[in-house]
């Protein structure tokens, strides 16, 4: 491989990195704690279930939703009050969560995540004998 080829590859990679989250928005979320699970509701309008990526790794929950522009880049807006782009947000989950049982559903632009608590932290009623 020649030197020129190397330079080109590097430049392309750099560009790809930069544009990956060129327009990223922070979705609004609700995080609710129930006795047996954590419930995360995230507003990610304009995404589809195929373009949403949810990861749980080392106690960090990451939500990424890819949203393509819905209008041409040349569109002349008479009113432009919000931007359209990917959604990205991550959380440190301190609660012990059963990662294998996490489920996600997407409807009406809202992503709902169920994070069941690990058995060890679920409230338990201890019977007093005597």
């Amino acid at each position: 491989m020649s030197n020129a080829d190397l330079t080109k590859t590097t430049a392309e990679q750099a560009r790809a990195e930069r544009t990956r989250c060129g327009r990223c928005y922070r979705p609004n979320v609700d995080i609710l704690e129930k006795p047996d699970e954590l419930l995360v509701l995230a507003d990610v309008p304009g995404a589809t279930s195929e373009t949403i990526d949810v990861k749980f790794e080392d106690g960090t929950l990451t939500i990424h939703a890819q949203v393509e522009p819905r209008q041409d880049a040349q569109t002349q807006y008479l009113l432009n009050e919000y931007g359209v782009g990917d959604f990205h947000r991550s959380f440190d989950v301190s609660e012990a969560v059963d990662a294998a049982k996490i489920t996600a559903e997407y409807a009406d632009g809202v992503l709902t995540l169920h994070l069941p608590k690990a058995e060890a932290v679920k409230p338990r009623v201890i019977k007093v004998q005597g």
Partner: peptide, 22 residues
């Protein structure tokens, strides 16, 4: 909600992000 408004061909388009709304 916040709105985006633009002209497209022979129509005016108004768009709003309304997650969770039916």
């Amino acid at each position: 909600p916040a709105l985006n408004v633009w002209e497209e061909g022979e129509a005016l388009k108004v768009e709003a992000e309304l997650p969770g709304v039916r």
